[in-house]
Nucleic acid binder design. Structure first.
Lengths: 108, 108
DNA sequence: CGGAACTTACGAAGTTCATCGTAATAGAAC
DNA sequence: GTTCTATTACGATGAACTTCGTAAGTTCCG
């Protein structure tokens, strides 16, 4: 995975990560749920996630997560599977993502 | 310090800390600045902090930080000095506070 | 080519939030 | 007791955010 031949949607690089944007992204409960689900399944599209909001809203949240640097989104036909940027986040904000995931219950 | 004879304003206990409330509290740039300043000076009142907002606004932010469990506020005459709940936050969300503080520049 | 499926951009509605000024409260000092 | 200072509660205002429905753009497949 992480095939370099894949095409990706625009996203900030490691040095461009802003702690304010990341925290604001993770402050929303739906987005934390997305993060938790991606942590479990590895990769998912907006429509494949089981969330209590409409797909267009999930797409909006995924965009915020991507632009803040929390997730990467790959182009695969009409699908846009996203995954966590776990290693990069860990390097930039050690412990942050892990604490949040382990503190986010499945029913939040 | 942390004299048990002191009186404190109401605050959630360790098990009552909600990751959503903490992240929402730390998502605001002014509140992150307060956290950074408290990390430096140890304890401070609303009026003693050098911030680009009015004191009444600082009081509002300090209340949010206190109710989310990020700071403790002690009663000392008319003053209400607050300090970080560093150890408790570290036990509940390991690495979170440190990552945020080190990623929050003095001019944010 | 034509249609179906997936995603997102856009506009709108309702809510939440940051900020301020003012007023009220509580302690300290005289 | 009175006055002064420090803090906070309250109301208002304007911005930002979440959510939705709809429409538009892409890709895949008969």
């Amino acid at each position: 995975m992480t095939d370099t031949t894949d095409t990706w949607l625009p996203q900030p690089d490691l040095t461009g990560l802003d702690v304010g944007a990341v925290l604001q992204a993770l402050a929303d409960p739906v987005r934390r749920q997305i993060v938790r689900l991606l942590d479990e399944c590895g990769e998912a599209t907006c429509s494949s996630l089981d969330l209590p909001v409409k797909v267009s809203t999930v797409s909006h949240h995924m965009k915020i997560l991507r632009e803040s640097g929390v997730v990467s989104t790959r182009l695969d036909g009409t699908a846009r599977p996203s995954r966590l940027r776990r290693d990069e986040l860990e390097r930039r904000f050690p412990g942050l993502l892990g604490s949040i995931i382990s503190a986010t219950p499945p029913t939040a």
